[in-house]
């Protein structure tokens, strides 16, 4: 019997190896392992065996069954895989054809710049304050140490609505409103971004509407060095860690002393080029120590509190950072301009 079983095994394995489709394999399964298959037929003769032989032959028979089953399964899988491969081959497409276009939107470049600046100062503990764009003369000028008839009012050509109402020329009234709201009894760390308006004819460098962002810090013992350090952090974040800053004296009615901040030109690295008009420096923003009268007018005791303020045009920052050459691009909203800078 042992020989018979071994013969069945080798015959079956050879047949499976030769099988070419799943139907042939099915037939072989019946032929060798089925109820009437050759293995079953051989095993029917087990009864004739001795008690000692029976378990040996039984084990052998199981092994032969397992071996044939395994071969059948392996061959089945192989044939199926071949069939699948053949089918997939027919499904080949031209991957070089263009894909389904996705409509890409995005933020306006100025929004991206504004949010970048906001996030930088939020990280340093500033809150973000906003205020009305139609302001009163009182908050836009008088509260900022610009009484009526002050010669410096000429610096800002104003769109008046009535004698008392106007389109704000700066975001500083938000500072005045915040100081007033805090009633002189708590420190302040804030920035105020927003639209402002001036009587300028629109050209490559002027726009009757533009955006500013201003900052204000008020506390006991705020120093001019604090302003310098803060602006240095800002400049390095916005324009690169290798940039240097310098302060120059300037004049704004609501700060004393007042400064302009220049950043070293990144085009020429301070050597002088056409971008920086050969000076090696580019004017970025203005600031200074809050004028004691401005503090006092909003209820802050200027002998106890001091503060610094700074302000900049967002368009100017964007133009310098991205090399935009005409401020009107921001307001024309040509899709070919906007999509250069999109960022969701």
């Amino acid at each position: 019997m042992k020989e018979e079983l071994q013969a069945i095994e080798s015959e079956a394995l050879a047949a499976v190896e030769k099988a070419e489709d799943s139907q042939a394999l099915q037939e072989m399964k019946v032929k060798y392992l089925g109820k009437k298959g050759s293995l079953t037929t051989v095993l029917r003769g087990m009864g004739k065996l001795s008690k000692e032989e029976r378990p040996i032959i039984g084990e052998l028979a199981n092994n032969v069954r397992a071996s044939i089953t395994e071969a059948l399964d392996a061959k089945t899988e192989k044939l199926e895989r071949a069939a699948l491969d053949k089918q997939l081959e027919t499904e080949t497409i031209d991957v070089t054809l263009p894909g389904n276009p996705v409509h890409v939107g995005g933020r306006h470049l100025l929004t991206s710049i504004m949010e970048e600046i906001e996030d930088l100062f939020i990280g340093m503990g500033y809150e973000v304050k906003e205020g009305p764009e139609v302001e009163t003369d009182y908050y836009n000028f008088e509260k900022l140490n610009l009484p009526k008839n002050h010669p410096a009012r000429d610096m800002q050509d104003t769109f008046f609505i009535t004698n008392e109402l106007l389109l704000r020329t700066q975001t500083s009234p938000v500072q005045a409103r915040t100081m007033e709201a805090y009633q002189g009894n708590r420190p302040i760390k804030m920035i105020c971004p927003g639209k402002v308006y001036r009587r300028d004819t629109d050209d490559a460098t002027h726009s009757h509407q533009f955006r500013q962002i201003e900052g204000l810090v008020v506390d006991k013992n705020i120093t001019l060095s604090d302003l310098k350090g803060t602006l240095d952090v800002f400049a390095k974040k916005m324009f690169g860690k290798d940039r240097k800053i310098r302060l120059r004296p300037s004049f704004f009615p609501f700060t004393e002393p007042s400064v302009e901040m220049d950043v070293s030109c990144k085009v020429c690295n301070g050597e002088g080029c056409s971008v920086c008009k050969q000076t090696g420096w580019i004017e970025i923003l203005g600031g200074g120590m809050v004028h004691p009268r401005v503090l006092e007018m909003s209820g802050y005791d200027s002998t106890v509190y001091s503060g610094f303020a700074f302000g900049m045009g967002q368009e100017r920052i964007a133009m310098l950072k991205y090399g935009v050459n005409d401020i009107r691009h921001f307001y024309t909203n040509d899709v070919r301009f906007l999509s250069q800078y999109h960022q969701a």
Binding site: H103, H108, T111, F159, K195, Q209, Y331, N333, L338, S339
Partner: peptide, 11 residues
């Protein structure tokens, strides 16, 4: 959603 942000004049 595929929209581009604009900034127009208030006036």
């Amino acid at each position: 959603a595929g929209l581009m942000e604009t900034l127009t004049y208030s006036l």
